[in-house]
Design a protein around this nucleic acid. Structure first.
Lengths: 149, 149
DNA sequence: GTGAATGCAAACTCTTTGCATGACT
DNA sequence: AGTCATGCAAAGAGTTTGCATTCAC
């Protein structure tokens, strides 16, 4: 749904303004790039996209923007074990997904699963930590690599 | 159980020998350190332990050993999002646990949950990837930090 | 003796920080 | 005007790699 992305973009920009942050070209560009690229992107991918679009933003500023968005919980930061942080828009409703990582080609895709969420919720009540987030990564071979042998 | 660790140590050393790798002091020391430290250690923690024990191993060799052990699936490499890889002995039976990370103090602890494993197993059959591993990280506040406010 | 494993240092990648410059309110 | 945000370049952290040396088989 095209709407969801721009919805997130508006939401994020509102939240930034509300929190007292100034509206600036570079930061807005990062928000836009996130909305455009969607799920599972790296800081460099964002910088590269903006570069191609002729509105380059310094990598440091991309990191600063992502860090801020993460602190405001407007993006979800995660990491599938390549030593590079990945980011994606965090939807206010709390609905979220998890990731499948292809061990051959490195491709990352997303899935949702209610059974999993329920199991995690139940489990969260059982452990002695007070849980407020979780993430799950499944590793294997994507259909393309599997076909290829 | 004390036995399980040395069992893993023996298993790992056997597996290395079987795979045609030479037995060497430094690599054996890394295996021992892993057995001793157990769950969720970093390369540096291993190097530091060996250092204290007066049998220092170069950090590069620790990484090389860990990399090899990981390829032979004798250790599990994971990452809780601090930008540092963590390792732990992988038990041959396949039994494994997941991690709780304290967002205040960074402490990492382990848990097991059958309900979660079942949910993941069911889910694995549903997705189009062929899954062969998974990991789950729960984030929150550990009891100590929670008490502290 | 031969080739693998090691140690050290240099290289690399990703990320963060210091500081002067420029932009929003 | 007064900050906050940016860009650049330098600094940092973690990890990998090149190469000469040492050690296992």
């Amino acid at each position: 749904m095209e709407t969801a992305v721009s919805e997130w973009q508006r939401h994020a920009q509102d939240a930034l303004a509300h929190a007292g942050y100034r509206s600036s070209g570079p930061r807005n560009a990062v928000v836009e790039a996130l909305a455009e690229l969607g799920c599972s992107v790296t800081a460099k991918e964002i910088a590269d996209l903006l570069d191609e679009q002729g509105r380059a933003v310094g990598l440091a500023s991309v990191y600063r923007a992502l860090d801020l968005l993460d602190r405001l919980r407007l993006v979800q930061r995660f990491d599938v074990g390549e030593g590079t942080a990945r980011y994606e828009p965090a939807h206010p409703g709390g609905e979220h997904h998890h990731h499948l990582v292809c061990q051959s080609c490195g491709n990352v895709s997303a899935f949702e699963d209610q059974g999993l969420e329920r199991a995690i919720e139940k489990l969260s009540r059982r452990v002695d930590y007070s849980i407020d987030a979780h993430d799950v990564t499944l590793r294997g071979e994507c259909p393309a690599c599997h076909a290829r042998g």
